[in-house]
Amino acid sequence: MSIIAKLLWVLLGLFIILNWGLLMGALIRKIVARVGKRVGIRWYQPWLSLPMLYSTRSSISHGVMYYLGPVFRLSGGVGIFLFMPLIVGSPYFDNFSFAGDVVVILYFQFFGMLGMALGAGEGGHPYSTIGISRGLAQFTTVEVPLTLAVISLAIQYDTLSIKEIAAAQQGGITNWTLFTNPLATAAALLSMLGIFRHAPFNLVQAPNEIPIGPPTEYHGTYLGVLRTNGAILHVIEAVLFMNLFFGGAGNWIELIIKTFFIYFFTVFIGVVFPRFRIEQSVVWFLKVPLVLGILAILFMAI
C-alpha cells in the first residue's frame, strides 16, 4: 500500500472515530439524562458546539506553552489513534501500528497529559495546577493495575503486539480475554475508571470546586481542540480495552458496539457513585484493583 493510500485510510479511520466519539458522547449524556428523568441534549449537540468553539472571534494567549498545550493534547489523542490497530485483520485500518506495540500506546498517553499540564500551567491559574496535581497523582496509581493486567496478557499471549493479542481472541466469544483471563480484565476495567475520569474519580475537573481544573483558562479554539481530542480519546481508549480484553473488532459495527459498552461501563459507575477525594482515590487503586492485577499475573505465570 502506498503511503498516500495509507494516509487516506488513516484519515478515514480518524474521521469515523471522531464522529463516533462525538455521537457516543452525546448518546451517553442522553442516557445519563434519562437516568435523571431529563430529556437531555440533542444527539447532534456536539457537532454544534465544535463550530461554536472554533469560530470564537477573539482569543487570548498566555504564552507559547499555553498555545501549544492543546496541540500536545490533541497530538496525544491522535497519536494513540495512529498507533492503534482498529479492525482485526484489516490492512486498511491498522493505522501505523507497525511502529510500536502496546507499550508505546501506554506511554504515549503521557504525551498529551504532560503537554496539556504545561499549557495549563503557563495559563497561571492556580486552579489549573490544583487540577493537574490531582490528575497526575491519581494517574500514578490508576496505571498500576493496568500495567499488571497488560503484563498478565503478555504472559498469556506471549506478545505485546495489540494486533496479535486481538487476533488471538478471534473465533468465538469464549476466546476473549474477558473469559480466558477474567482477573486481568477485571483489574483493567477498574483501572479504566480512572482513565476515563468519571465519578467517583473526577476530582481532577471537579466542576463545583475548582471550576474545571486544567482547562480553566482555555477557551474558543483551544477548547475546541481539546474537545476534539476528548471525542477521539474516549473512543480510542475504549478501542484499546476492546482490543486487549474484548476480542477486538472484526468490522466497524462491532467496534462501535463494543466501544459504546466499554465506555458506558465507566459512565454507569459514575452515575451511581459520588466523588472520591484525591487521597481516597489514590489509595483505592492500590487496593482491590492491585490485588486483582497481582492475582492475574500469578494466575498466568504459574
Binding site: A33, G36, K37, R38, V39, G40, I41, R42, Q45, L48, M52, P207, N208, P211, I212, P215, T216, E217, Y218, H219, L223
Partner: peptide
C-alpha cells in the same frame, strides 16, 4: 438543569468560567 425545565435539551449548558462562556 433539573428534569422539570431541562435547559440542556435546548443546547444550553452551564460553564464555570467566563473564558468558556458565551
Amino acid at each position: 438543569t433539573t428534569p422539570r425545565f431541562d435547559a440542556y435539551r435546548f443546547g444550553v449548558a452551564m460553564r464555570p468560567t467566563p473564558r468558556q462562556s458565551s
